[in-house]
C-alpha cells in the first residue's frame, strides 16, 4: 500500500447521508467494491461500515459511510485511522495514547459516549453501519472534534489544593486508608465523557452554570484530602450549582475509568453541602443557641510532628490529642 494515492480517487468510499436519516440504509455494498479495488488483500475479509459525522462548524454537516476491512481485535479508533490513511486524510479525530490513558479519543459510537480506542468492533453489530459522532454536548469544530475548552475554564475556578501554611511537607504523614478514596477520583483521565452525557449540560439551558461531574470529582478529591484546609462547600452550592445534579448516574455509566462518580463523589459532596446548609439538627441548634456548632470536618490534621505515626504510638489516646494539638487555623470560607 505504498506509492502515491489521490484522496478521493481510489479507496474513498463515500455515501452522503442526511443527518436526519440516521437509520436510512445507504449502499455499503457499492462502497465495499470501491475499497476492494484499492486494497485487494484486506478486502478479502469482513468489512464494517462506519457512518462518520463529517463537516465543519457553521457549515452543513453530514454522515459519510466508509467500508473498512475488519482485522481481529480492531477498535473503532483503528477503523478511523484506516479511513484517514486510505480514504479521507482530512478526517479530524483527536487521539493520543491509543491505550485508554489520555482521554482524548472520546466520541459517541452508536449513540453511546465512549473512548473510541477502547471500543472493539467485535462488540458491535457489524451488520448495521456503526455511527460515530463527536461529543454532542460541546460546540462542534470539525468532524469528530469538538471545542472542550469550556471544561478547562471551569477547572480554573476551583480553589486548588490548600495545605496548612504553617506545616512543612516534611511533617506530613497519612495512611493509605486516608487516600484510597482520593486515588479513585485521581484516576480521572479528563475524557469529558461524563460532561458530555450529563443531561444538565446536554439537554438543559440553566440560568446559572453547572460545573459538571468531572469537576465534582476533582473537587471531591480536594475536599477529602486529609490535609487540605479550604472549604469549597459555598462554591459547590452557589457557583458550581451542585443542586442541578439530580443523581441520575449517567456520568457513572460512561466513565471509562470506572470511577463511581455519583456514589463516591457527588453524593458525598451533596451530603457535605447539606452538613453546612441543610442539616436540621444544626439548624435547630442555631435557633436555640444563636450560633453554629463547631464542625469536626477539616479540624484534624494527619500530621504527627516528629514523624510519629499513629500506629507507632503506644497510647491510643495520645495520638488523638496530638492531632488536636496541631489544629489548623479555622477553615477558610468562600474562595475569593
Amino acid at each position: 500500500m505504498t506509492g502515491p494515492r489521490q484522496p478521493g480517487e481510489a479507496g474513498r468510499a463515500v455515501t452522503v447521508v442526511e443527518p436526519t436519516e440516521v437509520t436510512a440504509a445507504s449502499g455499503p455494498a457499492t462502497a465495499g467494491q470501491v475499497i476492494e479495488a484499492a486494497v485487494p488483500a484486506e478486502a478479502a475479509g469482513a468489512t464494517a461500515t462506519l457512518r462518520v459525522f463529517r463537516g465543519e462548524a457553521g457549515q452543513d454537516t453530514r454522515f459519510e459511510d466508509f467500508a473498512v476491512p475488519v482485522q481481529e481485535g480492531m477498535v473503532v479508533l483503528d477503523a478511523l485511522h484506516w479511513i484517514q490513511g486510505n480514504a479521507a486524510p482530512d478526517l479530524a479525530v483527536r487521539w493520543n495514547c491509543k491505550a485508554a490513558k489520555c482521554g482524548s479519543c472520546s466520541a459517541e459510537v452508536n449513540g453511546h459516549p465512549r473512548l473510541t480506542c477502547k471500543t472493539r468492533l467485535s462488540d458491535l453489530d457489524l451488520a448495521e453501519p456503526i455511527t460515530v459522532e463527536p461529543m454532542r454536548s460541546f460546540p462542534h469544530i470539525r468532524d469528530l472534534v469538538t471545542d472542550v475548552s469550556w471544561n478547562y475554564a471551569v477547572n480554573r475556578t476551583i480553589q486548588p489544593f490548600t495545605p496548612p501554611a504553617d506545616l512543612p511537607q516534611s511533617e506530613w504523614r497519612w495512611q493509605q486508608a486516608d487516600i484510597d478514596r482520593l486515588q479513585e477520583f485521581r484516576k480521572c483521565i479528563e475524557c469529558f465523557l461524563c460532561q458530555d452525557v450529563c443531561h444538565v449540560l446536554r439537554s438543559h439551558e440553566t440560568e446559572r452554570p453547572f460545573m459538571g461531574p468531572r469537576y465534582l470529582v476533582r473537587t471531591a478529591g480536594l475536599e477529602m484530602h486529609p490535609i487540605d484546609q479550604a472549604d469549597r462547600r459555598p462554591y459547590l452550592k452557589e457557583l458550581g450549582n451542585i443542586g442541578y445534579c439530580n443523581i441520575t448516574k449517567c456520568c457513572t455509566e460512561v466513565c471509562p475509568e470506572h470511577i463511581a462518580i455519583t456514589d463516591n463523589a457527588i453524593i458525598p459532596l451533596k451530603e457535605r453541602v447539606a452538613d453546612r446548609y441543610y442539616d436540621p439538627l444544626r439548624w435547630a441548634w442555631r435557633v436555640l443557641r444563636g450560633r453554629l456548632p463547631e464542625l469536626p470536618v477539616g479540624r484534624e490534621l494527619p500530621v504527627f510532628p516528629g514523624g510519629q505515626p499513629p500506629a507507632a504510638s503506644a497510647d491510643p489516646q495520645a495520638d488523638g490529642s496530638e492531632a488536636a494539638g496541631t489544629s489548623p487555623p479555622e477553615r477558610r470560607d468562600e474562595p475569593s
Partner: peptide
Amino acid sequence: HIVGGRLDCFSCST
C-alpha cells in the same frame, strides 16, 4: 456520610 464519610482524615484518632 454521617458515620465516616464526612471525615477528611481517617487515621487521625482512635
